[in-house]
Amino acid sequence: MKLVLLPGDGIGPEIAAATRVVIEAAAARFGLTLEIEEDLAGHASLKKHGATVTPELLSRVRAADGLILGPTATFDFKDAARGEINPSMYFRKNLDLFANIRPSRTYAGVPNKVGDFDLVIVRENTEGFYTDRNMAQGDGEILVTPDVSIALRRITRHCCERIARSAFELAMTRRRRLTFVHKANVLKISDGMFLDICRAMAADYPEVETDDVLIDAMMAHVVRKPSRFDVIVTTNMYGDILSDLTAELSGSLGLGGSINAGAEHAMAQASHGSAPDIAGQDVANPMSLILSTAQLFDWFGSRSGDAAYVAAAAGIDKAIEACVGRGEATRDVGGRLGTGATGAAVAAAVAGL
């Protein structure tokens, strides 16, 4: 497996280094053949190449088997004409990474106020309210006058169908429950299309129990009783907000893994941002990026038929669970270690499986 690793900005280099230690341990333990190529994205690339991401980098990523993208300073990048391109958007759009898969679960040893749960949010990743992904040319957010702004939301049958099918397929591997989250009572045409497509596709998966919940009500339900949910499928912005909430309910956003997957490519990406306020202090939690990379291994192993990568993904998950339970983690999840030591602890746990 050939991987491109882009450490990114802020805490990115620290958590990327910890992640690399873990995946190298997993390669040794499970007999994986890994080739890891590090490159630049974000501010470092802007300084060196005049752009946060380059076409040459995209070509290298296309030729690889997977991408690990560390957090980047997205808010800083405002003018694409000056090379200030959102790296996450760039890869999602150019690689057509239409499914953002974000598991959230509780861990023994990490306090939570909502009880134990284990769910996965399947978020459409290429359209919706994210206006930088909605146009073939230009942007779907428009300043009509200094006092009037318009944002266009795009919902297509094609994107609804493929994200719904991805969610049903995932539900078949879990507890066979799927919830459609929408706002079709107000957005009758766009969310109505999404909901109609999800309901129609249920006929292809009679083993899966389905229901649907309005997005505002869903926020209350996951706080009240997240254990009632298994797999949740929704459109782009709803999924972005909801998955941050469920990750935080598990104990920390630092425990939220995330993979962006398409038909041919996939990208591991932590659920959180670049946190420049704590960069360089050895306190950032690397587990989100580590868990995301485990998802990438599982995606590659399932797609290629290589069971060793699937086993490695499960092993990394098990190692993180053990480390969190022993307090061999960062302080945000009740641990006592710094970023680097947490990576080393997870790597040791993987090696000892």
Rank of each mutant, 00 (worst) to 15 (best):
P87H: 07
P146W: 08
G109Q: 08
R177S: 06
V114F: 07
Y90P: 02
D139V: 13
I150H: 03
A151D: 09
H158C: 03
R176I: 02
R105Y: 08
S88V: 15
M193I: 04
H182I: 12
P111H: 13
T156H: 00
E161Q: 13
R175M: 03
T145G: 00
R153G: 10
A171K: 06
L187A: 01
E127V: 03
F129Q: 14
E127R: 04
F117K: 05
P87F: 02
H182Q: 11
R174I: 10
T173C: 10
V181A: 05
R154L: 15
M89K: 11
L178M: 08
K183G: 06
R92M: 10
R174C: 00
D147C: 02
K93L: 13
A164H: 13
T173N: 04
L95P: 04
N94Q: 14
F117P: 04
I101D: 03
V110C: 03
D132R: 14
R174V: 09
V122C: 08
E169V: 13
T145C: 00
L187D: 07
L178G: 07
V148E: 10
P87L: 03
R177A: 12
R102A: 04
G128F: 03
N112P: 09
D147I: 12
S149H: 10
R154D: 00
V110R: 05
Y90F: 13
D147S: 14
H158A: 15
S190T: 15
R157C: 04
A164Q: 09
P111V: 08
Y90T: 09
N100T: 00
R154F: 06
R105C: 08
G128Q: 06
T126G: 09
A136S: 11
V110G: 07
I121V: 14
Y107Q: 04
S104T: 05
F194A: 06
A99D: 02
G115N: 01
M135H: 04
L152T: 01
D96E: 11
D139T: 11
F168K: 11
V186T: 12
K183E: 05
T156W: 05
I155T: 14
K113T: 15
T173F: 10
D116P: 02
A108W: 04
A99E: 03
M172N: 14
L119N: 01
K93C: 06
G140S: 01
E124A: 03
V144K: 05
N134S: 14
D139A: 08
I189E: 12
D116Q: 03
